[in-house]
Simulated scan of single mutants.
Amino acid sequence: MSVLTHGTGSFFGGNSTFADVMLPRTTNTYMHEYNQIAQTASYLNTPERMWAAWYAYIGNDVLATGIMSFMMHEIVYFGRCIPWLIVDRIKALRKYKIQTHKVPTAQEQWDCAKLVLLSHFTVELPQIWFFHPMAQYFGMAHTVPFPPLYKIIYQIAIFFVFEDAWHYWSHRALHWGPLYKNIHKIHHQYSAPFGLAAEYASPIEVMFLGIGTVSAPILWCAITQDLHVLTMYIWIVLRLFQAIDAHSGFDFPWSLHKFVPMWAGADWHDTHHEKFIGNYSSSFRWWDLMMDTQSGPEAAKKRRERKLAKAAKSA
């Protein structure tokens, strides 16, 4: 931890905020803050200097985290969706499309994008805005230097497992009659999903399923008091990638599920949209396999065979 101080507060780490401990500013520019930090904390790497300079430049931790979180979410979400929009228009790649007879039109994608944007600004933005106070309450760090890479990796691995369990049972519950009709049906408007449709859902569903994404890190932090906002950001980015890719509608020879055992992938979730039932998991396949809720003709065939074998045995 740094020992650079201003007044009585520690500039890096501790309980003080960046705004409280920042050295006096002679000009209100981001580059001024960056250069000042580079001179006084040369042991920090470039990303750490950029991070600290951002908080110092904004001068308000809640505002700094809120702006950075929302911009990150929008850039990552739509930035990841754009390649899939292009892939949808390349006929040479059409052979990798899972439901080849269902290609989303430009109008469908535009209508989807409008609802997703509306949801981002009306539902997700308020939640993102209150993230920093909640994170601070549970002891989540936002200071520099950043945690080591190994810690980031194993914590995110835990988050993936936790979120997948939450998503399975929550998603399965949303397919119960009244909940499906009044909440989840919106998400199933597209029986052949595409990237933009990953967050095409009712506000209630966005909040309900989002709890799994946010509560895993918060619970971990509350128990261990050992989590950094950067780890949270990387987790959110990877979770967005997973959700968008699962809705892409394409299964390539290099798709992740062909190299990572039990990874769900687009083929798993595409079948869920096509059949409207089963394959409830988000990232992994094990919950569906354990609970016998796989979707698709092969899974249905195996269930019939088990049922016939059981009937023959009891006869």
Rank of each mutant, 00 (worst) to 15 (best):
L219K: 01
K301Y: 10
Q294E: 15
W129Q: 01
T46I: 12
H269F: 07
Y180T: 00
H142R: 06
K151Y: 04
S314V: 14
A192H: 04
A312N: 15
W51Q: 05
G59L: 09
D292F: 08
L125K: 02
M71H: 06
G296R: 11
A38D: 10
G177D: 12
I211L: 15
G139Y: 06
D164K: 04
N35A: 14
Q136V: 04
D288M: 13
A19H: 14
H132W: 13
M232W: 10
G66C: 05
R239I: 01
L23E: 13
T40W: 05
L85E: 14
A315V: 13
V144S: 08
C221M: 12
W235D: 04
L196F: 15
L289V: 14
S281Y: 05
L117H: 08
L93N: 04
L256G: 01
C112V: 08
I223N: 07
Y96T: 03
S2I: 07
L308Y: 04
L85M: 12
M72I: 07
T29H: 12
A312P: 00
G13Y: 13
I156P: 00
E74Q: 15
E163M: 02
H247M: 03
I82S: 09
W166K: 03
F70K: 08
A264D: 07
A216T: 03
F146A: 14
F250N: 03
N279D: 07
F131L: 12
Y280R: 03
F130Q: 04
Y180Q: 03
L240Y: 05
T143L: 01
F130K: 00
M71Q: 12
F131I: 02
V62S: 07
A309Q: 13
Q39T: 01
S69I: 11
H132I: 03
I58W: 12
F194D: 05
Y34W: 14
S191L: 10
E48S: 03
Q242L: 01
L4Y: 13
T100S: 15
A92F: 10
D226T: 08
H228K: 11
R172G: 04
M72K: 11
W110V: 00
